[in-house]
Every structure is written in C-alpha cells, then in structure tokens.
Write a protein that binds this DNA or RNA. Structure first.
Lengths: 173, 173
DNA sequence: AGAAACATGTAATCGGTTACATGATTAT
DNA sequence: ATAATCATGTAACCGATTACATGTTTCT
C-alpha cells in the first residue's frame, strides 16, 4: 500500500498516515504508524524505496521516501496477485438483528447516527472529488457514493420495520 | 455473539460456527473454532450459559449450550453498550485505484468475478429470506440486498471508466 | 477410494494496534 | 493555557486465525 501511494508522489511516513485517513481511501484501508514506519524501513532496505533526509527546525528530520524502479516493478507484480476477499465487520448490523431486545428510542438513535455518518462520508468524498484524484480513485469514490446512498435510502424506507418491534416501550419517554 | 445466537435456539459449538457461515450473518461477522470453543467455555464458567452433554456414537460427545437468565441479562446489557464503528477492508477497491497499471483483460476479469460474487451473495440471502428469520435479521438482510444491488449497478454502469484506462493493451489478445 | 461433513479442543503463530518515548510549533 | 499538529520510531500487547490432534460416518 505504501508503494502504491508513493507511486503517485513522494512522501514521508507521517504524510502516508494522513493519506490513509482521507476519504475515500480511509473507507476501505487503514494503517497505523506502528505498521507504516517499519514497512518503510523494510522496503527501503529491500531497495524498493529511496529515502532522503530533510533536516528540520526543532522537529525530527523529515524522511522523504520515493519509489525506485524496482519498487515500481514490485508494485505492479503485487497488483497482479489474486486479490484477497473483502473483510467487513459491523456491530451495528449485529445489534439490529436483535432490535426486538432494545427500546425504540435506542434503535432510533442508532439509525439516526448511522445515517448521519453515511452523510458525512458522502460529503467527505464529494469534497475530494474534484481535486487531485486519479481516474481509478474517482471510480472507487463513485462506488462509495453509490453504496452509501443506497444504504441511506434503505434505512429511511425500512427503519419502521425495526422501530416497530419494541414500539410501545418508549412512547411515554 | 454466541449469546445472541443462543438466545434464539440452543446449539453446539459446531452449529454456531455453521451459523456464522450462513448469509446474511457471514457478510458482517465471523468467528473460527479457535475463538468459539474457548468463548463457550468461558461463558459457561461465568454462568451465562448452561451446557448439557449428548453422548454420541463414534464422534465426540455433542455439547449443547443453552443461555441462562443471567446470560440473557448480560446480552441485553452488551447490546446497549456503544456500538463499535464498522470495519471494512477491500483489496479489490485498492487495486481498482491503480487500474491504469493493469491490462484491460485483468480489470475486466476482476470486475466480472466481483459482480458474480455479489450475485451469489444476493441469491444466498434470498434463499434464506423466507425461512426462520427474525424481523431484525430480515431488516439486516434487506439492507444487504440493497447495497449489493447498488454495487452491481454501479459497476455495470461505470466499469468503462477503468476498463478504458489500459484500453489498447488487450485488443489483440 | 477419497473427500467432505460431523465434532471438540489446544498451541503456535501472526498481523496489527496501542502505548510509550521525545519534543517543538501553531492554533484556539 | 491548552490542545492539536508535526514528526519518527520501538516494545508490549491482543484478538484471532491456522495448524495440529483425533476419529467416524456419509456422500460422490
């Protein structure tokens, strides 16, 4: 993943971490400093990256990584390896399976904040859409928008199914 | 999660594992024997489950677990704890970000098999829809259908965006 | 004949996060 | 003042998977 990001532009470990926090990438990949820094060291030792130090005032030196030719080749080879299946885990959906054990107000709150979360993700993607996005990234971002919108729509149109289950409990609350 | 499944019906560890492999649950939760068996032992030791042995011919005895009253209470309490955010990781989407580094035939194959996978998931959910599904599970299954269909639709309508990137390479192949 | 399903459990391993260590600069 | 951002790196820890251990029955 570091190789892929550095294919587009050179960057420091810190900047790579920031890139993982931006939409749409943040939606389907993540990495912490604890995995990024060692990875950059290993890739550099293997000759897939080159590193140059930019001394800084006060802060630690900034290490700017750049992909090498053999790094480019290794990345292309990696892209051709069979892709691992998606991994998805959702506590929200699990809880919804047991909506009948919850008060209506809880279910309502959960769905409201989930819709708000999807809307925030959509806004974040839309605000990045015009800028420095590659075609591939635009394609991926577009799929994100499509599924988030479908999810919101479903939740709005079918929430009564689970809000009705524990219906009476919260009427007076 | 074991508590939740055992809330609906008593089962053995083996049967719980099978339940995690069935749609729609398999789409957003998973667990291996290596975590299920120890979990059942711990929950039993804590008094949240009761276990009865059914001796069997040849095979090891089947241990059938049943949720206790305090198990029910603990599960309700757990449902009320704040839900962890969804975790999603997709190598497919990452690879698509770099579609311009791939031959067109590769991209086409990847998208084709992804659509086939979504269709299989939809079929699996639909075939379980009528049977012994709780209302909450039906709601969750419905959301699965909605987003899978939206994803297929997006892929079909926009695949040309990434198939065009490396376009010429595979024309004669 | 061989594979898959049935059935439980432990130990080794692994990928990855969190916490720690350090410290100046800038925004609120 | 206080929090957040910038900046790198290591060590401890943790949840969970995979492999191992064992053995019968049923399906292909």
């Amino acid at each position: 993943m570091c190789l892929g990001l550095l294919l587009r532009q050179e960057a420091s470990g810190y900047e790579i971490k920031k890139a993982f926090e931006e939409r749409p990438l943040a939606a389907f990949q993540d990495a912490s400093y604890g995995s990024i820094y060692p990875a950059l060291s290993r890739l550099t030792a293997a000759g897939l990256l080159a590193c140059r130090d930019r001394p800084q005032d006060g802060r630690p030196d900034k290490k700017i990584y750049r992909i090498t030719q053999s790094g480019r080749e290794a990345f292309r080879a990696a892209l051709h390896r069979p892709v691992a299946p998606d991994k998805y885990r959702s506590d929200f959906l699990f809880v919804m399976m047991f909506a009948d054990c919850l008060d209506r107000s809880i279910v309502t709150g959960l769905i409201d904040s989930r819709i708000a979360d999807y809307r925030a993700r959509i806004r974040a993607i839309e605000s990045n859409f015009e800028s420095n996005m590659s075609d591939g990234m635009r394609f991926v971002a577009g799929q994100g928008l499509a599924v988030y919108r479908a999810a919101i729509r479903y939740l709005e149109e079918h929430r009564h199914l689970v809000e009705g289950l524990a219906a009476q409990k919260a009427i007076g609350a």
